[in-house]
């Protein structure tokens, strides 16, 4: 099957524990029954999609980010670099310039604005990327090194790897980090469609409305999947209706589903209704992005 345009779907949620990873893994496995698919775990601080698969490791590489390295012999102590760093990753303590690699966003500002080239950029390891294959499913995950505080460069490098290696694959699913931080923006910014996963509870609604604001700020097409439908109340449903947000699917709350999830198993095969939901979700995304030409 050749598709007109590869489809990039990001799955996000306002907070952790809403079943975002369950949806990502099940959707990927469901697609892989017929087509080649890539699932990318961008929750690099706590990747866990991998728990669901026993794949063959096909590739592993260290990921580097660029950081400035102070060249004391060239530095004139002009004081520019600490002023231009928005992240306080380089500071000046009298005659010493200190660089904090874990805080650095690799923006190059200090390096480029240093008048005497005393801050050349050098690579520093920030995490490890692993690529697994389970039949038609490719699973890519990156792990941020301990102590490293900046996940954005690793997320961005992971996406580049996927774009390079899997440009021929028609569907890629990005499991985004939870929250509404700059990490989510980085993870979702070049997706064609974003699925926001939520639960029908007051907390779920609160986090969903924040996530909706983020998506609107990014001008992303998005829709909502309500997980554990049946618990809590109907406020999430009302909210979506008022805000004109499409609900792609409501996945029923069943104890058995929760059990299978916590045991790290794919559950859609055992639940026709879940399989049905996945199929609806996929159709919706394809139609929304390709305008029904798929």
């Amino acid at each position: 099957m050749t598709n007109p345009k590869p489809l990039k779907i990001a799955i996000a949620s306002g907070k952790g524990g809403t079943g975002k990873t369950t949806l990502s893994t099940n959707l990927a496995a469901f697609i892989a029954e017929q087509d080649e698919v890539v699932l990318v775990d961008l929750d690099v601080e706590e990747p866990n999609s991998g728990l669901f698969f026993n794949g063959i490791l096909t590739h592993e590489e260290d990921i580097f980010k660029m950081i400035p390295q102070w060249d004391e012999s060239k530095c004139t102590l002009c004081g520019i670099c600490p002023k231009v760093c928005n992240y306080h990753a380089v500071i000046q303590l009298g005659p010493t310039i200190l660089v904090f690699p874990e805080l650095c966003h690799s923006c190059y500002a200090c390096s480029e604005l240093c008048p005497v080239d005393a801050l050349p950029m050098i690579p520093k390891k920030t995490g490890t990327l692993r690529d697994f294959q389970i039949e038609k499913l490719h699973f890519v995950e990156s792990h941020l090194d301990i102590g490293e505080e900046q996940a954005v460069p690793l997320i961005s490098k992971t996406k580049k790897y996927v774009a390079r290696k899997y440009s021929h694959v028609s569907i890629t699913i990005f499991d985004s980090p939870p929250g509404t931080s700059c990490l989510v923006m980085e993870a979702t910014k070049d997706a064609d469609f974003v699925i926001l996963v939520t639960e029908p509870t007051p907390f779920g609604l609160h986090d969903l409305s924040l996530a909706v604001e983020t998506m609107r700020a990014l001008k992303k097409p998005f829709g909502v999947v309500v997980n554990r439908y049946g618990i809590g109340n109907d406020e999430v449903i009302h909210y979506c209706r008022e805000e004109n947000i499409s609900i792609l699917s409501k996945i029923p709350n069943k104890r058995k589903i929760a059990e299978l999830y916590s045991s790290g198993k794919l559950m859609y095969r055992d639940f026709p209704e879940v399989k049905h939901s996945l199929s609806d979700i996929l159709d919706y995304c394809i139609t929304a992005v390709r305008g029904g030409i798929a």
């Binding site: 992240y87 306080h88 500071i91 904090f100 805080l103 966003h105």
Partner: peptide, 8 residues
């Protein structure tokens, strides 16, 4: 500031 309060 979101980042680097300690160093600042």
């Amino acid at each position: 500031d979101a980042h680097g309060a300690g160093t600042a």
